[in-house]
């Protein structure tokens, strides 16, 4: 069994394993981060560390979102990032082995699989892919900000 933090992007439900999350900031105060690509919308002060905030709905091509002020701080050392999402939902205890239904074949979706939880579909966010996509699409020198995301609108 594993704990999963589900959150909404548009009307799709995504999830992150609790072990991938350092913490959830309850009332994140976004600060202006100049010269940043459009998807990096702010910086937040996480215990004295300056961390960038990724607008996950925008990055993954969802329609303009009503971002929650509860934000997810990732636990990855090499990817110190805060994710802004539409809405956080209560933790779920799931059996990952049993419930993964599909293996994604579109890596740019940043999804490692989809699980069925009591009839609801939850896409598992693949942080490794996300990291790579952010690097490639937002921080390629001279590459501008054109993101290779699929437009879901």
């Amino acid at each position: 069994m594993a704990l999963l933090l589900p959150f909404m992007l548009g009307d799709e439900r995504y999830g992150l394993k609790l072990t991938d999350i350092q913490e959830v900031i309850e009332e994140a105060v976004p600060h202006y981060l100049p010269a940043a690509p459009a998807e990096i919308i702010a910086a937040v002060n996480v215990h004295g560390r300056i961390l960038p905030v990724l607008d996950l709905p925008l990055f993954l091509g969802f329609p303009p979102a009503n971002l929650s002020d509860r934000m997810i701080v990732l636990a990855q050392r090499d990817f110190p990032m805060v994710l802004a999402v539409d809405q956080l939902e209560p933790l779920l205890s799931v059996d990952l082995e049993q419930t993964i239904l599909t293996q994604s074949d579109a890596p740019q979706d940043c999804i490692s699989g989809v699980l069925n939880w009591q009839g609801q579909m939850i896409s598992l966010l693949d942080l490794e892919q996300l990291h790579k996509a952010v690097q490639e699409n937002c921080f390629v020198p001279g590459g501008g900000h054109g993101s290779a995301r699929t437009d879901r609108r």
Partner: peptide, 18 residues
């Protein structure tokens, strides 16, 4: 503060402070 990756690659910023 030195900026963390990947925003350390943003041109035009020499650091951040709290």
């Amino acid at each position: 503060q030195a900026l963390p990756s990947p925003i350390d690659r943003l041109r035009g910023l020499s650091g951040g402070t709290i």
